[in-house]
Amino acid sequence: MRDNTQTPEAQVAQKSKISATGVQVHYGDTHAIKDVNVEIEDKTVTAFIGPSGCGKSTFLRCINRMNDTIDICRVQGKILLDGEDIYDPKVDPVQLRAKVGMVFQKPNPFPKSIYDNVAYGPRIHGLARNKAELDEIVERALRRGAIWDEVKDRLAAPGTGLSGGQQQRLCIARAVATEPEVLLMDEPCSALDPIATAQVEELIDELRQNYSVVIVTHSMQQAARVSQRTAFFHLGNLVEFGDTDKIFTTPEDPRTESYITGRIG
């Protein structure tokens, strides 16, 4: 069922997976996102960069309607996923979030065993026919999250007992276990050592074969390494959006240039 999004035509067309036009987000009186237009392509890694508080997480949360859970948050504008408006009243946000997975900025493992954490999504969506299949899904997800070797002997231990970086990778594994079409990753490597970071970047690269990935990062090097497209946010505005190579070599906007070279942020 998931495979029909990868029809040959779609692959050839490289058409945009997500297309956001005129997105505005308000938290009460705070205007957090100001008229943002972004096209996120299929089978591409898109990086969101920008100084702290500029609205990267907020925009990311618009894409899978996680902002619905915040009472004071209002989202205006249009966001299309595969040509369908995700803010249409007919769209079920629950269904949407199964397709658009998310790794949160702060690791949030459930107070359950490591196994149950990863098996959570597959169980809800009935992805496994039996225990053996579920075991397989869990193992594969943990391997992709670069944490399998560390936890394979204590799958029954609580996920909350892991270290911060391990929890972050557990959450990545949990998100990929449901095989989303789009994966939104909010600073997934903020608490990881260089080795684990490299493994997660490898995973992102691997995911790109089939899915589109959006990653928020504060590391310019990481953005340059893993992404094909980069968006630079500043004070709620999308300042510049384009090919990663171009943004990092010949940025058009002076604000982008000063951020990349470390003068603002």
Binding site: T69, R97, G101, T178
Partner: peptide, 23 residues
């Protein structure tokens, strides 16, 4: 119960009642 746990569950495509029951 921290909101981040609910967010984690919703983010995996769980319904509110699944979130309540399981998390």
């Amino acid at each position: 119960v921290p909101q981040s746990l609910r967010d984690g569950s919703y983010g995996l495509g769980a319904t509110p009642s699944e979130t309540i029951r399981n998390v």
